[in-house]
């Protein structure tokens, strides 16, 4: 298969970027999208040009390192998959593919397609944890947890922190990310203890870092590679508001 690639190139955070067009040929349909970029990069290196910088690591759809806005969609075509799990058979032979970095004020571009998602770490540092000390905990089976609750906590905990939600949201809102963590811990008795504090602190940090407001479009849930539901956003709202009204 052959493709024309329109890729955002940007030297560093301060420089102005722009699109450049490249051609790749003889790509097997079993090649993954990132392998296709590897091939392009190898060609560029041989031509003495700088390869396209993009984030990636596990290539199994779990580390959350890969990003990319491909043809207008976060993580490219297909649902419930990260960019690294997209295979070229999903594209038409001869297609022109536009590749952009995540665009969100809170995710500044570092280089080309690489952005800084440190804001997500900062939100979790504000309260996305349970304050237990190593080695001072009860037996794992001391508190039974209804299977349905554990399953729902797991649904939310599946978040890989890739940033697709904020990147997709027309408001640049990180609500799905924040909600996934708050909701996951809120469903577990261990997490309930600090529930109110957590919701308030994480929302405050999210606002402080310049993320937008949720307008319930549901675009985040549609593009989330782990298909996390906006029902968790509802739970976050509930947690936050009830915490605030108790103040």
């Amino acid at each position: 298969m052959n493709f024309t690639l329109k890729i955002w190139r940007q030297k560093d955070a301060k420089s102005k970027g722009g699109f450049e067009t490249y051609k790749v040929s003889d790509i097997s349909e079993d090649t993954s999208f990132l392998e296709m970029l590897d091939i392009l990069n190898n060609d560029l290196i041989h031509a003495g040009k700088e390869p396209v910088a993009f984030d990636h690591d596990c290539r199994e759809g779990i580390c959350g390192m890969c990003s990319l806005h491909i043809d207008g969609k976060a993580h490219g075509p297909g649902q419930g998959a990260t960019t690294c799990q997209i295979y070229m058979r999903k594209f038409k032979d001869g297609a022109t593919i536009t590749i952009e970095p995540w665009r969100s004020a809170a995710f500044p571009v570092i280089k080309d397609l690489v952005v800084n998602r440190g804001a997500y770490d900062q939100i979790l540092q504000a309260g996305g944890f349970i304050s237990v000390r190593t080695n001072s905990v009860p037996d794992a089976n001391a508190i039974p947890i209804p299977k349905a609750d554990a399953d729902e906590a797991m649904d939310a905990a599946a978040c890989i922190g890739c940033g697709a939600c904020a990147a997709t949201c027309k408001n640049g809102s990180a609500m799905l990310f924040v909600a996934a963590r708050v909701s996951s811990l809120a469903k577990l008795p261990q997490g309930r203890v600090e529930g109110a504090r957590r919701a308030k602190a994480m929302v405050a940090k999210m606002d402080e870092l310049g993320f937008g407001n949720c307008t319930n479009t549901g675009a985040c849930q549609a593009e989330c590679p782990k298909s996390i539901s906006i029902a968790h956003i509802a739970r976050l709202n509930r947690e936050f508001l009830s915490a605030k009204f108790e103040d």
């Binding site: 080695n135 209804p146 299977k147 577990l188």
Partner: peptide
């Protein structure tokens, strides 16, 4: 064994049986 205790306390959503145990 301590690891499992620790992780459960941290909010790791391990799979559970209907009785609520791991």
């Amino acid at each position: 064994n301590l690891i499992i205790d620790q992780c459960v306390a941290q909010g790791v959503p391990f799979a559970r049986e209907y009785g609520g145990l791991l």
